Amino acid sequence: MITRSEVEGAAARIGDRVRRTPVMRHGSANGPEVWLKLEQTQHTGSFKARGAFNRILSAAADGRLPESGVIAASGGNAGLAFAFAARELGVPAEVYVPMTSPMVKVDRLRDLGADVVQIGDRYAEAYDAATKRAADTGALFCHPYDQPEVCAGQGTLGLELLEQTGGDVDTILIAVGGGGLMAGVAAAVEGRARVVGVEPETAPTLHRALAAGRPVDVEVSGVAMDSLGAPRIGEIAFAVATRTGVPSVLVPDAAIVAARQRLWDEHRLVVEHGTAAAYAALLTGAYEPAAGERAAVVLCGANTDPGDLVPTTR
């Protein structure tokens, strides 16, 4: 469980090691006016650098950071974030990825200075190998989303958004996979704004957990699986969601694709499909702001191939 206090501590600890990403006003003659938080411009292309820095810096401050460094399991945004933060802090990093990971991602991890270990055909195999290696070497294991320091670090985005809007926001829409970002932001803005989780219909981890009253395993698939493919909501995320009343709304894959294209057409913003899910909730009416409600959408990542965006002259 985390609270605003832990998020404030993370903000002080991280300082200017992460970018203060911009916000922009998004208006439409046919819909509500909202803020867009452009977190896709963060280091390594996603919000996860925030949590990575806080996890490593917290361990260093408490004397828990060994000379063997850090270990993570992720060929995606989390792996990139931990590799980047470790490099910036002068800490050795090992990142475990499945053999099926695209070489472009493996090469990028190596470019960031990480030792990359390719093992197994599935993420679960890489994860198991990483946790065993951490236990054997004493290295600090860094979870992609279900550790207090990681969630608190991600929550610094929420503090930043409140400052940038002068507190002039009622609702924040956030795409949910494992739930680390949602948990951190919900804790950061508790009592000041409401967080709404948005998930693909094909990866409803929070939705199913809320219905079951506990985190449950979910079969995941669809266009956003690369970034919202966690098979189970994190324990921390579930606890924060139930404490703060975070609901889940679902959007279909077709709407996610359309939302991603629209962000390009209207704003020249390139984002991941998972990121576009949050925006799709507004476009489809899965979430409809009330009259006068002030909403914000977090655009949380941009590690995507823009080649499938349809060229437009708008």
Rank of each mutant, 00 (worst) to 15 (best):
P231L: 11
A52G: 09
M182R: 05
R260C: 10
V116L: 06
D115R: 10
S227P: 11
E33N: 10
A224L: 04
Y123A: 04
T131Q: 14
H43I: 02
G179E: 05
R13S: 07
G180K: 02
P252W: 12
R268L: 08
A212V: 01
H207C: 11
L159M: 05
L140W: 00
A254D: 13
R268C: 08
T41W: 08
P200D: 02
H26C: 15
P32W: 14
K48M: 13
D16H: 06
A29C: 11
L299E: 15
Y123F: 07
G120N: 05
A86P: 07
A212Y: 08
E199F: 08
V176L: 03
D226T: 15
I256T: 08
D308L: 02
P98E: 03
A135C: 07
D308S: 09
G222F: 04
R55K: 00
D146S: 15
T205Y: 06
A135I: 08
A130T: 05
A254N: 08
A59M: 02
I2D: 06
P289R: 15
R17G: 11
V169E: 01
K105L: 11
A281M: 04
H273K: 00
G274E: 02
C151D: 03
D253K: 04
P252M: 10
P247A: 10
Q147G: 07
N54M: 04
D111Q: 02
L283S: 15
G274W: 02
T131D: 10
I119N: 00
G138I: 12
A241M: 07
Q42Y: 07
V23S: 03
Y287F: 15
Q40L: 07
A124E: 14
